[in-house]
């Protein structure tokens, strides 16, 4: 189990290579990569603020919650903060389990909780200035399915 909160980039391919493998009890690995998307067509950069100390604890608590629910052989969460540009990787989640249903569900669960229960705030910078990204009701509603 690993949780990393960092400003610098990570190598998704290298992180995925070998993740959860090597044991005899893993039959499924699911990996997810979150990328900075430019909906407006004018996004220059995004800045992600976080709450050092709480961020790591909140993500660890989310991972613990997932492990209570699904039998996971391994979990990896990496989330970046600071300045990020369109096309750059923001975060990744990887889960390893005996069967694929657990690996897929746990990855989705982690994503849903990271969106609205981990202390990150996104600010978008464009030609007309900067704006904080508002939380979406759907993100909060998504937790209801768990």
């Amino acid at each position: 189990m690993q949780v990393r909160v960092q400003a610098g980039p990570f190598d998704y391919g290298a992180e995925c290579a070998g993740f959860g493998q090597g044991g005899r009890d893993v039959g499924a690995v699911v990996t997810f990569l979150g990328v900075v998307r430019d909906d407006s067509g004018t996004l220059q950069r995004m800045e992600i603020e976080h709450y050092p100390g709480m961020t790591e604890k909140a993500i660890a608590a989310i991972v613990d919650k997932a492990r209570l629910r699904w039998a996971l052989a391994d979990v990896l969460v990496i989330h970046r903060h600071g300045a990020l540009h369109p096309g750059e990787a923001i975060m990744m989640v990887a889960t390893a389990a005996r069967h694929r249903v657990a690996a897929f569900e746990a990855a989705e669960f982690l994503m849903d909780y990271l969106k609205s229960r981990a202390p990150f705030w996104k600010k978008e910078f464009g030609p007309d200035g900067a704006e904080w990204v508002a939380a979406k009701d759907e993100d909060e509603d998504a937790l209801g399915r768990w």
Partner: peptide, 10 residues
């Protein structure tokens, strides 16, 4: 004590 708007991670 920390105050903040709803979080927007992920």
């Amino acid at each position: 004590v920390a105050f903040f708007p709803p979080m927007t991670g992920g």
